[in-house]
Simulated scan of single mutants.
Amino acid sequence: MKKKLYMAVETDEYELPLYVADTSRELADWSGFSIGYVLSAISHGYSGKKAGMRFLRVEVELEKDFK
């Protein structure tokens, strides 16, 4: 099962995570930017230099819970 996570990362070469959220709304609330800006930055791949952070959407594979 895949899950989408939304991240704010540093704008340097290492892109260390600043914040990880389950929804884009949560990321927007944390960052102080509008939801529209966050989604636009993700879809257009903004570098984040002016904002001070870069926004990303990543998919992670969740392992099945075996019992």
Rank of each mutant, 00 (worst) to 15 (best):
M1K: 08
K3D: 09
K4Y: 03
K4E: 13
L5T: 08
L5R: 07
Y6T: 10
A8W: 03
A8P: 07
A8M: 07
A8E: 06
A8K: 01
V9F: 01
V9I: 05
E10N: 11
T11S: 01
T11D: 08
E13F: 08
Y14S: 09
Y14Q: 15
E15W: 05
E15G: 06
L16M: 03
L16P: 00
L16E: 14
P17D: 05
L18A: 00
Y19Q: 15
V20W: 00
A21H: 04
A21D: 07
A21W: 14
D22I: 02
D22K: 04
D22M: 04
T23L: 10
R25N: 08
E26L: 07
E26N: 11
E26Q: 13
E26S: 11
L27H: 12
W30E: 10
W30T: 08
W30P: 09
S31D: 06
G32D: 01
F33D: 03
I35P: 02
G36E: 13
Y37E: 08
Y37Q: 04
V38N: 04
V38Y: 07
V38A: 01
S40D: 15
S40L: 00
A41L: 03
A41T: 12
I42P: 12
I42H: 01
S43H: 12
H44Y: 05
H44V: 07
H44R: 06
H44Q: 09
H44L: 13
G45S: 10
Y46A: 08
S47D: 13
S47I: 00
G48R: 02
G48V: 10
K49L: 14
K49Q: 15
K50W: 05
K50P: 14
K50N: 14
A51T: 14
G52T: 06
G52N: 09
M53I: 10
M53W: 05
M53A: 15
R54G: 06
L56H: 08
L56A: 12
R57E: 15
V58Y: 05
V58S: 00
V58K: 13
E59T: 09
V60I: 15
V60D: 00
V60P: 07
E61S: 06
L62V: 15
E63R: 10
E63Q: 07
K64P: 13
F66Y: 11
